[in-house]
Each structure stands twice: as structure tokens, then as C-alpha cells.
Amino acid sequence: MDFIIFLTLLLLGYGFGTWAESRHYKSIEKREIQYQKLPTIALKHPLPQKGKVVKVKLASGNVVISVDYFKRFLAALRNIFGGRVSAYETLVDRARREATLRMKESCPGATQIINVRLETASISKNSKKGSVGSIEVFAYGTAITYR
């Protein structure tokens, strides 16, 4: 009985997880193209730009994403052998790109965002040993608007 519940969860996790992931990636790619022309850099000094600075603001965006049951199981299996945990690769990739996009969306009209920092924190449901499951990515930088 327990095994049936486990299999159901695994299948549900795989189905919904894959669907949600591909949908999320589509949305990320669409928005990345939209913000393609906004310079987003990790340098401490702004790119040379004509015009006068009219606005300086701390831009930030964050997101908490959870991994599905199937990938969690996969990662637990991977824990036995060690090596590359590819199950979590898409999780962190999606979270970082989403947070960066939200940071860009938080400052409409900005000319450039400089000194971008990304911070990752794992959010565990309970303090059980190293259960990653969901992560938070927080992206922040200085948005400068020239005119």
C-alpha cells in the first residue's frame, strides 16, 4: 500500500514537474529576449553612457522554487553514489534566471543595472539532514536611469 502511494507520488511528481518546468523555461526565455537590451553587469562601475543620471535605485527580485517528488527521489538515489546531481541543475538554473528577470522587472525604465549579486539559500521544510527540496534565489543590483 505504501509502495502504491509512493509510486503515485513519483508519477505525479514526474508528470506535473516536467510540465511546470517546460512552461517555466518558455516564460523565462520569452522574457529574457524582452530584456535583452538592458545592460546587466557585475561590474562596480557603470558603463560609459551619455546623458545625466536621473534616478538611482536598488533593484531586487527573489523567487522560491521547489523541486518535485520525482527529482527529489532521483537526488536521494544519487546521494548513494555521489557525482553530479543533475536532478537539481534545472532547479537552481530556473531560480537564478527567474530572480534576475524579476530584478530587471522591478525597475522599469532603467538604463543599466550594475554590480549584480545573486544570493542562494536553501529552504528546508524541517531541519532534517540536508533535505534541499526548495531554494530561494535573491538577485540585487543598482539600477541607474540616464536621460
Partner: peptide, 17 residues
């Protein structure tokens, strides 16, 4: 940043091991 291998392939390899 993401592996080419699909999760299902990964699952089969790991389960077999």
C-alpha cells in the same frame, strides 16, 4: 548549466546500480 541527460535515463541508471 543543465545536463543533456533526461531525468528518466538518470533514474534507470541509478535504479539499476
Amino acid at each position: 548549466n543543465v545536463s543533456k541527460r533526461t531525468p528518466l535515463q538518470e533514474l534507470l541508471i541509478l535504479l539499476g546500480g
